[in-house]
């Protein structure tokens, strides 16, 4: 039996729309993962510090406000500065295709857009984290 996947979920920026991230949190938990939801208005340093401290396998970010092109790069930079690049960063929200491609190019493992089944995100995490641990 492999170790339980540990995921930190957070909402950065000023956006308060937390329906999606709570649904994700519940689905991950039901799928047997350990979920730490840090809540709203987390700054990139807060998120990365918490992720390092909690020794998580992945960080999941939800942004619906349109600030994704500022916040994802800021989190990536913070991960680099804190030597936390082994943690998988993924996210979701209202993110146009063009931006999604750009973010996946600069180091976000995956961006999930509206309508994605939670099962797809769960499978993605299991697969990718298993590969990384090999």
């Amino acid at each position: 039996m492999p170790d339980k996947i540990r995921v930190l979920l957070a909402k950065p920026g000023l956006d308060g729309h937390d329906r999606g991230i709570k649904v994700i949190a519940a689905a991950f938990r039901d799928a047997g993962m350990e979920v730490i939801y840090t809540g709203l208005r987390q700054t990139p340093p807060m998120i990365v510090d918490a992720a390092v401290q909690e020794d998580v396998d992945a960080i999941g970010i939800s942004i619906l406000s349109g600030a994704h092109m500022t916040l994802f790069p800021a989190i990536l930079e913070e991960m680099k500065a804190k030597d936390a690049e082994d943690i998988l960063l993924f996210g979701g929200g209202i993110i146009p295709e063009e931006d999604k491609q750009e973010l996946e190019k600069i180091g976000v493992a995956k961006i999930f857009t509206p309508g994605t089944p939670t099962e797809e995100a769960i499978q993605f995490l299991r697969r990718t984290i298993a590969e990384r641990k090999k």
């Binding site: 000023l14 406000s65 092109m69 500022t70």
Partner: peptide, 22 residues
């Protein structure tokens, strides 16, 4: 936009990336 709704001016550090977005 979110900075206005959250009571921050556009040049506040927390407004970064959010100005005029939604």
């Amino acid at each position: 936009d979110l900075p206005t709704l959250m009571g921050y001016d556009s040049d506040h550090i927390r407004s970064l990336g959010e100005v005029g977005k939604c």
